[in-house]
Design a protein around this nucleic acid. Structure first.
Length: 224
DNA sequence: GACTTGATCCCG
DNA sequence: GGGATCAAGTCC
């Protein structure tokens, strides 16, 4: 059944949390879907905003796990992370893409078009579709009744945090073959980073059609 | 390749 | 304090 991931879920090594989040459902005010692409950022990682120590911008990363770290980038975009590890360690998982499952009409209105494959297939697209902004920096995402929440895999796309009905078209067809929502996890290097570019800390659901970009040929696994 | 704005850095 | 720099992206 639908189960809100507890704060303790995020109080683990960020690489573990990142992989475990794939296939889970993320909702913001009832709008969201199944996570298909995430990246891990650790404090000892030159690509992380916390690499050079605490600042006003990254302060939330140093707080307790399970909160959202939202930052503004490239002059016009927001990206959202969930803080991981013990308090003070400053690691986080960047939410890069999800398979839209709940609140499709709101997402379409916010994004300005219909194509479900382009609604949340990138970190800044995702925040636009879910209407996440700087005001949400530091918001808890592991407390019952909150605006934000992560839900276990078997919750499927039907999990709603007091949300409205379920329009499951996009996400259910994403995994037509498997009924258990267990992702086939493939690991790649992270997108758009220069320092620490070699670290294979991007995790994707290889069978999803909602990734921010196609898998590199070599990353493919299984028969083919 | 352009766009766009703010946090951070380095000098002073 | 102030100016230069560059950024975990998106559009097609």
């Amino acid at each position: 059944m639908s189960e809100l991931l507890a704060c303790s879920f995020f109080e683990r090594p960020v690489l573990e949390v990142a992989q475990d989040l794939l296939g889970c459902t993320f909702l913001a005010d009832g709008v969201g879907g199944r996570l298909v692409e995430v990246e891990a950022y650790r404090s000892d990682d030159p690509a992380s905003h916390s690499y050079r120590g605490r600042t006003a911008r990254n302060a939330v990363m140093y707080g307790p796990p399970g909160r959202l770290y939202v930052y503004f980038t490239m002059g016009l975009h927001f990206c959202v992370n969930v803080v991981c590890g013990p308090e003070g360690q400053a690691s986080a998982v960047l939410l890069r893409a999800l398979a839209p499952a709940a609140g499709l009409e709101l997402m379409r209105a916010r994004r300005g078009f219909d194509d479900p494959r382009r609604l949340c297939s990138g970190p800044a697209k995702l925040t636009q579709a879910l209407a996440i902004t700087r005001a949400d920096d530091g918001a808890p995402a592991c407390e019952p009744g909150g605006r934000f929440g992560f839900f276990s895999r078997d919750a499927g796309a039907g999990a709603t945090a007091g949300g409205s009905g379920s329009d499951l078209d996009a996400a259910s067809s994403d995994h037509a073959a498997s009924s258990d929502h267990t992702p086939r996890i493939v690991t790649t290097t992270r997108i758009g980073v220069t320092a620490g570019a070699e670290r294979p800390w991007r995790f994707v659901d290889a069978d999803s059609r909602f990734l921010s970009r196609p898998l590199p040929r070599g990353a493919r696994s299984g028969p083919g």
